[in-house]
């Protein structure tokens, strides 16, 4: 691999730009295709499919075996609510290589003592996102766990609008029904709100904050690795 190709690949990753490295495994010939250049590429259908799956793969084209190194931006986790579950969730997310940010406007909750070493933002989600915290995109997971509609709802709306691959919200079925009504009144479509996972987390009978955190992370991994067909 040419050093400049590797540097370009790493730069794309750092800037959260998706790209595909195409390697002819017979002779090692390579070229880097940026996500925005896929449509005009001679291998457009193959590359588009690989990009959508987010997975690297060996393919055959024009009688050649090509390896597609699919690089999509690293997944980010945005947690709304500096609550007990978030305290358990943050270190577990780090162990999974998920860069986590916790947002909560209530400074009593969002205190550095409660979240040592974590990216913690004591502000309203709709003010923090796109400013202090990079805007949400489809490579983000958002978990809204404050139980407070004033804080959770705007964040959920932003996550659905940005097409986050995972949008979860804490609360019982009854709480969620009320939430759906509020979001509909705020102009979100049923197709959008249907993407919210609630009650949040895989159903493993989680009882403690750490167990709920585990259930949430397991559900995020499932959404990432086994995405539902669009």
């Amino acid at each position: 691999m040419r050093p400049e190709t590797l540097a370009a690949l790493n730069a794309a990753r750092a800037d959260r730009r998706a790209a595909i490295l195409v390697t002819d495994i017979a002779d090692g010939e390579q070229r880097l295709v940026a996500a925005e250049a896929v449509e005009a590429d001679p291998l457009a259908p193959l590359l588009a499919r690989a990009l959508a799956s987010g997975r690297s793969a060996l393919v055959e084209a024009e009688g050649r075996q090509l390896f597609l190194t699919v690089q999509v931006p690293p997944v980010r986790l945005v947690v709304i609510g500096a609550v007990h579950i978030a305290q358990a969730l943050a270190p577990m997310a780090a162990a999974l290589d998920l860069a986590a940010t916790v947002i909560d406007p209530r400074t009593a909750f969002a205190s550095p003592e409660r979240f040592p070493g974590l990216d913690l933002v004591a502000d309203w989600p709709d003010r923090a996102l796109g400013a202090r915290v990079p805007a949400l995109d489809r490579y983000c997971a958002l978990a809204a766990i404050t139980h407070d509609p004033k804080i959770d709802d705007p964040a959920l709306a932003a996550a659905l609008g940005a097409g986050c691959f995972y949008v979860g919200a804490l609360g019982s079925r009854k709480t969620h029904a009320a939430r759906l009504a509020r979001l509909a009144a705020a102009g979100l479509t049923e197709a959008q709100t249907a993407r919210i996972r609630a009650p949040i987390g895989l159903d493993i009978g989680a009882a403690t904050p750490a167990e709920i955190a585990l259930a949430i992370l397991a559900e995020i991994v499932q959404a990432l690795r086994r995405p539902e067909p669009a």
């Binding site: 050093p3 790493n10 690297s56 060996l58 290589d97």
Partner: peptide, 26 residues
Amino acid sequence: SDSDILAAAEAWRRAGRGVALATVIE
């Protein structure tokens, strides 16, 4: 993570080391 690995490959090369990258392709 894979990003650390590719970043290391670039840093090692910049530092003048001979570097190879192995990738599971199938």
